[in-house]
């Protein structure tokens, strides 16, 4: 019964299309990951986690890039639509980063014999996770939503620009203590694996796009509910003051 209102949203039909497409492509990606792609010569079936892990990492990074752009947009234009975009994307990015860290651990345990290694990519991902966790802590610790949006925008900009610097520094730091190498080098990968990875990447990107659309409208609706409460209170107050004046 509530669907009547959501259908009115701009781009709703298109988003539904994207969502359906995401489902179809994801189904294909899963089939390819488990059936079509060959088992890795060295790692066996465990390597199939790669088709979840790598696309998630790339898309998480894309999500934080969108948050970065949203932050710049908000600080520049002061229009809260930018902030709604930024926080919607940061949330998906944080969830995806969590999945990346967990799936990486699950993959690392049988292959490297350890849940964790201080490799540049892992370390950078972990720090990224902490930065965007701080992003949401910051938001929840500031009571004025307008101020929270400004602060979050700043952290979103700092965090994103910091990523390549963190990566470089951890990379150089590790060169003295070489850890296990994660890279499943593109050249060594059979063509079927590359195709499967690309399909999985497409599926993950579509899921991100669909979730971003949903999250964005939820965030927007939250703000509109707050506006509504504000207006309701204002109207009630105006009535009270009128009545008070006429007494």
């Amino acid at each position: 019964m509530k669907q009547g209102s959501t259908r009115g949203l701009p781009g709703w039909r298109f988003a539904q299309g994207v969502g359906a497409l995401a489902g179809v492509v994801m189904a294909i990606a899963l089939y390819m990951a488990f059936v079509y792609a060959p088992a890795d010569a060295l790692q066996g079936d465990v390597q199939r986690i790669f088709y979840l892990h790598v696309p998630m990492a790339w898309v998480a990074f894309l999500a934080f890039f969108v948050t970065f752009i949203g932050g710049i947009g908000y600080l520049w234009k002061r229009h809260r639509g930018w902030d709604q975009l930024a926080r919607a994307s940061a949330e998906i990015g944080l969830v995806f980063t969590t999945i990346v860290l967990l799936s990486g651990s699950l993959w690392g345990k049988p292959i490297w014999g350890t849940w964790w290694t201080w490799d540049a990519r892992l370390t950078t991902t972990l720090l990224l996770w902490f930065i965007y966790l701080a992003y949401f802590m910051l938001r929840s610790y500031v009571s004025d939503p307008e101020r929270a949006a400004r602060y979050a925008a700043v952290l979103g900009i700092f965090g994103f620009i910091d990523v390549p610097i963190i990566y470089k520094s951890v990379d150089w730091w590790r060169t003295l203590h070489p850890g296990p190498v994660v890279s499943t080098g593109g050249a060594a990968m059979p063509g079927s694996m590359v195709v499967t990875l690309l399909v999985a990447l497409a599926a993950t990107t579509l899921i991100y796009a669909y979730m971003l659309y949903q999250r964005f409208w939820i965030e927007r609706t939250k703000d509109e509910i707050a506006d509504y409460h504000y207006r309701l209170y204002e109207r009630q107050l105006a009535r009270e003051m009128r009545e008070g004046a006429s007494v």
């Binding site: 009571s143 004025d144 939503p145 307008e146 707050a226 409460h229 504000y230 209170y233 107050l237």
Partner: peptide, 10 residues
């Protein structure tokens, strides 16, 4: 002036 749901100046 408004802070979130609370109006201060009208």
């Amino acid at each position: 002036k408004r802070y979130g749901r609370r109006g201060v100046l009208r």
